[in-house]
C-alpha cells in the first residue's frame, strides 16, 4: 500500500438506548435534568409512558429487534407509583424477561430497570452515562437477522433497523 493513503479512522461505537420512562417520576426527572442543564450521553431516546406498569416485555423485545443496543426502564420508587402497583408489576415482568434474555444471549447490562423519583435529575444523568459506557464496552447487540415473513419484512410495526454504529 502506498504511504500517502490515509486509512479511515474507525469511529467509536455509539450505542443506542431506548428508555421507557414513567410520566410521573422518571420522565419528570429527565425534564429536571434538562432544566438544570445536566448534560448526559445523547445515546438515550426516551419514550414516555404513563407508568412503568405499562412496559410490556414485548416493547423491550421490539426495541431490541429494531436496533436498540440497550433498554432502560424507569419508574417511580416502590410505594410511589401513581397507580399504586404498576412498578411492582413492572418489576415482576422485568425479572422474568431477564431470565429469558440471558437464555437468548442478551447480556445482563443491556436491559435495566431503575427507580428514579421526580427530584432525581442527577440520577437520570448518572444512569444514562453509566449505561452508555457499559454498552460501549459490550459493543453492538448482535441479534440474528430475522427472515422475511410471507415475502415481506417481518411485521409492519417493525421497520428495518438503520445501520448500526452511527452517531445518534
Amino acid at each position: 500500500m502506498s504511504s500517502n493513503v490515509t486509512l479511515p479512522v474507525a469511529k467509536e461505537f455509539e450505542p443506542r438506548i431506548v428508555a421507557f420512562f414513567c410520566n410521573w417520576c422518571t420522565y419528570t426527572a429527565g425534564d429536571l435534568a434538562g432544566a438544570a442543564r445536566l448534560a448526559y450521553a445523547p445515546n438515550m431516546r426516551v419514550i414516555r409512558l404513563m407508568c412503568s406498569g405499562r412496559v410490556d416485555p414485548e416493547f423491550v423485545l421490539a426495541a431490541l429487534r429494531q436496533g436498540a443496543d440497550g433498554v432502560l426502564i424507569g419508574g417511580c420508587h416502590p410505594g410511589d407509583c401513581h397507580y399504586r402497583e404498576g412498578n411492582y408489576k413492572c418489576l415482576r415482568r422485568f425479572q422474568l424477561l431477564c431470565k429469558f434474555l440471558r437464555q437468548m444471549g442478551v447480556e445482563e447490562q443491556r436491559v435495566r430497570l431503575e427507580w428514579i423519583a421526580a427530584s432525581e435529575g442527577d440520577k437520570v444523568q448518572k444512569i444514562a452515562n453509566e449505561m452508555t459506557a457499559q454498552l460501549k464496552l459490550l459493543g453492538p447487540l448482535r441479534l440474528q437477522i430475522t427472515p422475511r415473513v410471507n415475502g415481506r419484512p417481518r411485521a409492519a410495526e417493525c421497520p428495518p433497523a438503520p445501520t448500526k454504529g452511527v452517531a445518534p
Binding site: 414485548e58 448482535r142 440474528q144 430475522t146 427472515p147 419484512p153 417481518r154 448500526k164
Partner: peptide
C-alpha cells in the same frame, strides 16, 4: 416466529431484518 428469532451471538453480525 418470535421477535428475537434466535439466540444472539458472535456469528450473528448482520442484525436487523432481512431486506
Amino acid at each position: 416466529a418470535s421477535l428475537l428469532f434466535a439466540r444472539a451471538g458472535a456469528n450473528a453480525d448482520k442484525g436487523g431484518h432481512e431486506p
